[in-house]
């Protein structure tokens, strides 16, 4: 169990990385390093969920831990996946049950010299954003105190990740808003170009672009852009 003073230092360090320029990878690297130190584990790694349930290994304290996590993903078994599915910590599983539940994963763990593995969720309310894996050379169980510290560290990580995600999504929406406005203007301009060059009315101009976009499976805004740039003429649009 870590000293209280050291624990406080680590939380201050993690909180500091949450402000200003937040880098998720740097942040999670710090998290795994400090977790290994504070919980007397030998290696740690983080797996994050992304869109469509895809998992990514994003940080680990050693190559071996990373190898194991990759194996875990490939084999579709292991404490980390159970932890992600339930949102609960998977710790101190007795070795016989460990082998029975995850045969290939436990074999891989032992092969690289670890004796035990644990998983702590990164979660906020109903949202599980990932899990942290701990690997130990000794078959030593985590104490309740260790688990509390581990979960507290994971909670800080979760808030950091959710904040970063919210900021990133907002930025994405801001860009989409700009693009949508530009497309709207571009389509109107393209109607005007066709009206002038082909002598057709505004509705026919739009129908012409829309029919072409359907035939060629291209978005109307892309067709409009090429019309405004004069790379597509009325004759091109009518040609089937």
């Amino acid at each position: 169990m870590a000293s209280e003073q050291r624990l406080t230092q680590v939380f201050v360090e993690l909180a500091d990385t949450l402000i200003d320029e937040f880098d998720a990878l740097d942040f999670l690297s710090t998290l795994t390093e400090r977790t290994v130190e504070l919980l007397a584990a030998d290696a740690a790694g983080v797996i994050l969920t992304a869109a469509h349930g895809v998992l990514h290994v994003v940080a680990s304290t050693s190559d071996r831990a990373q190898v194991l996590e990759l194996l875990e993903l490939q084999n579709d078994e292991g404490p980390c996946l159970d932890c992600l599915a339930t949102g609960r910590a998977v710790v101190n599983v007795p070795s016989d049950r460990f082998r029975a539940r995850w045969p290939r994963f436990s074999a891989a763990v032992e092969e690289v010299g670890f004796r035990s593995a644990h998983a702590i969720p990164l979660r906020l309310r109903n949202s599980v954003v990932g899990a942290m894996n701990l690997f130990c050379h000794a078959d030593s169980p985590l104490s309740d105190g260790d688990l509390a510290v581990g979960q507290a560290l994971a909670d800080v990580a979760t808030i950091g990740l959710l904040q970063e995600r919210a900021v990133r999504q907002a930025g994405l929406i801001a860009e989409q808003l700009q693009t949508a406005l530009d497309n709207r203007v571009l389509i109107e301009q393209a109607k005007g170009v066709l009206m002038a060059s082909a002598g057709i009315d505004v509705d026919d101009a739009f129908q012409l672009m829309r029919a072409y976009s359907r035939r060629h499976r291209q978005a109307v805004k892309d067709v409009a852009r090429r019309v405004v740039e004069r790379r597509l003429t009325e004759a091109d649009l009518r040609r089937s």
């Binding site: 301009q189 393209a190 005007g192 002038a196 060059s197 505004v202």
Partner: peptide, 18 residues
């Protein structure tokens, strides 16, 4: 919308950019 349409229209007629 009519302003943007006229912009495209005039760009063709006057041979200028939008």
């Amino acid at each position: 919308a009519v302003v943007h349409q006229a912009t495209g229209f005039l760009a063709v007629k006057a041979s200028v950019g939008t």
